[in-house]
Design a protein around this nucleic acid. Sequence first.
DNA 1: AACACGGGGAG
DNA 2: CTCCCAGTGTT
Length: 359
Amino acid sequence: MNFSDRLLNWYDKNKRTLPWRNSQDPYKVWISEIILQQTRIDQGLVYYNRFLNAFPDVRHLAAASEDEVLRLWQGLGYYSRARNLHRAARDIVEMHNAEFPRCYQDWIRLKGIGPYTAAAIASIVFKEVVPALDGNAYRLLARVFALSYNKDSSKGKKQFLDVANQIIDTQRPGDFNQAMMDFGSLICKPALPLCPECPMNDICVAFQNDAVAGYPVKNPKRPVKIRHFNYFRITTYDQQGNTLLYIRKRKENDIWKNLYDLPLLETAREASPEELFKHPWWKSLIHCQNNYTIFRHPKQRIHKLTHQTIKAKIYYVSVDAEHTRTLNKMFFAVDFERFEQLAKPRLIELLNWNADNNE
DNA sequence: AACACGGGGAG
DNA sequence: CTCCCAGTGTT
């Protein structure tokens, strides 16, 4: 029995039950594929259900604001997925009369849709015979066929795609692709794969050569960048005596683009309170040194991400309402309830911005 | 081809 | 700690 038959036999007995499976609804499959990019199913599932509930179809998604979409994405990471998803929804509604593409070549034109996602949707929903290669599929193919190129190299991409095109089941391309992922996730796992009970072990070249640990071939990892974020929780009071918090929307092409956070001074090295409060940035913010109160002991938090470690401190500052003119130019003041509703980085949530003081 | 982009779970 | 997850976009 060949690879494809073994795979589908295993899949028919062991496939996971997932809310978008067998739905044949391009919208649901699309949303699930975007949410699951670089995201484990356990983590993405709750977001998928919330998302479908808030935006039941592409017209609802297109009608929403980007802020609303990002708020639902809060905490999931890789926020360009949400921005691109929203953009694609508007393109579908406005340019294609809310009708979804029907083939790989049309799907991949949309924002946020790359080779993997276009193939996944086209094969699952429209039965197109195109391999959808995610991390699971790459690992499975690398081991069974002892593919020795890195999947990220141009040679590797071609090699993996060539092999997949030869073995893909032309009658059940969608099941084949999903089977590769389930199998890779449950049997051919990254660490400690279940080789003894694997139905492929007698045809797996890596296993036969006792070389499973050598596949897939990975590229060297980049060093983690360390960044120092000095946040300022600046509050003032309005005429009614309500506490207002100064915030901003991140616009830079940097981490957390279009999410909201607090006034931030990033420094190359760890900075003392003295350095920060004599910094031109701070002095330009609040001219009169006598009209604000600083709590000198900042809260600290180390936020570890895949490619960077952010060492964050948050200083609590209270400013008299008469001296907020410059502040009002660079930031805007909202009450806590309003800020709660805006999309924020996980770090900001965890920094306890809404606590009354830091004593 | 290299890099940027989050957050969390597993071992 | 390290690895990596249903990858894509930009340079």
